Amino acid sequence: MTDDLAPGPAAPARRGLIAFVRRWWWRIPLYFAIFSVVQVLVLRFVQPPLSAFMVARQLEAWGSGDFGFRIAYDWRDMDEISAHVPVAMIAAEDQNFPHHHGFDFKAIEKARQHNERAEERARKRNTTVQRLRGASTISQQTAKNLFLWRGRGPTRWLRKGLEVWYTVLIETLWSKQRIIEVYANTVELGDGVYGAQAAARTYFRKDARRLGPAEAARMAAVLPNPRRYSISRPGPYVQRRSNAIQRQMRHLGGATLLRQLE
């Protein structure tokens, strides 16, 4: 007579899974924390051969059948990049970069209030909001570009949490000069074009060290939507934003701004 109450073959598997979780639930976060600290420490001194965003874009191209697509990326140390480039990026993206510690809470609050007003106006007009204001700092964008993914869909909040962690790490373990140097070299400035040197060669046919303030401002003007806006064929929006960035560059003190990062 068969015993119907006898445990089936799934019971040992469940017990094994529970035992595995109990044994490893605290080790996996610890190992990740150690790995990420070492990762950030190494990249304080070593130039990154690629970024997570570059890898994702290359895989995206191959996945769509575009096997001829190639990433344009050419690292240059900060002394090989025109000082106008980092100043333009700070003016465009994060004017408090020299002073904050990775997160600009005043900018976050202003962005929240602006977006609430924009959404309220859109509801009254029965339309959708065309452009929400962000408040990510250059430190946050560097962390995301270098280590993470675009975070759409169900993984968005996981990516946000990891972005906070990596931002704290690079602000703790890197200098401000290193952060802006990595950002200027890895930020996307066109579809598959990453960093100041690749953008300078692609759009202006010159090295990044020879870029003037107007060219640097035009590069920064396409951020944070470099696939929507064009450096080589700037429309009215990019032209207006470029002019505004140049004014802000002068207001921030031009190249003297970089001395605050030392």
Rank of each mutant, 00 (worst) to 15 (best):
190 G>P: 12
172 T>A: 06
219 M>V: 12
150 R>D: 09
154 P>H: 08
186 T>V: 15
216 A>L: 03
146 L>S: 04
154 P>L: 07
250 R>H: 08
208 A>D: 00
213 P>L: 12
220 A>N: 09
206 K>M: 09
242 S>W: 02
247 R>Y: 12
247 R>F: 11
202 T>W: 02
157 W>I: 15
188 E>L: 08
162 L>H: 07
223 L>T: 05
248 Q>P: 09
166 Y>M: 13
203 Y>T: 06
178 R>A: 04
155 T>N: 07
145 N>S: 13
222 V>L: 07
166 Y>I: 08
221 A>R: 02
221 A>V: 11
210 R>N: 13
215 E>S: 06
207 D>W: 05
227 R>T: 14
250 R>P: 01
239 Q>A: 15
214 A>E: 14
147 F>D: 07
158 L>H: 06
179 I>D: 03
145 N>D: 12
150 R>C: 04
250 R>N: 10
144 K>N: 04
245 I>Y: 06
182 V>D: 01
224 P>S: 10
251 H>M: 11
219 M>T: 12
171 E>C: 07
212 G>W: 10
222 V>A: 01
188 E>K: 11
245 I>C: 08
162 L>W: 12
160 K>L: 15
144 K>G: 00
167 T>P: 03
250 R>T: 09
184 A>M: 06
166 Y>Q: 09
254 G>V: 03
143 A>K: 06
198 A>E: 05
234 P>E: 11
183 Y>D: 00
185 N>W: 04
159 R>Q: 10
213 P>M: 11
233 R>T: 15
235 G>A: 10
214 A>G: 07
227 R>Q: 15
202 T>G: 00
223 L>K: 05
204 F>W: 04
222 V>F: 04
168 V>P: 00
251 H>D: 13
171 E>I: 07
235 G>D: 15
233 R>H: 15
168 V>K: 01
192 G>C: 08
229 Y>N: 02
245 I>W: 07
186 T>M: 05
169 L>R: 01
171 E>G: 09
216 A>P: 00
202 T>S: 03
157 W>P: 03
146 L>Q: 08
235 G>R: 09
161 G>E: 06
165 W>M: 10
225 N>C: 14
205 R>P: 06
170 I>W: 04
181 E>V: 02
180 I>M: 02
180 I>A: 01
217 A>E: 07
206 K>N: 01
217 A>V: 14
208 A>H: 02
231 I>F: 02
227 R>E: 13
254 G>R: 07
172 T>L: 05
229 Y>W: 11
150 R>S: 13
244 A>Y: 09
233 R>K: 14
209 R>C: 10
190 G>K: 09
157 W>K: 07
178 R>V: 04
226 P>C: 05
207 D>Q: 09
224 P>N: 12
174 W>M: 05
177 Q>A: 10
239 Q>R: 15
199 A>E: 08
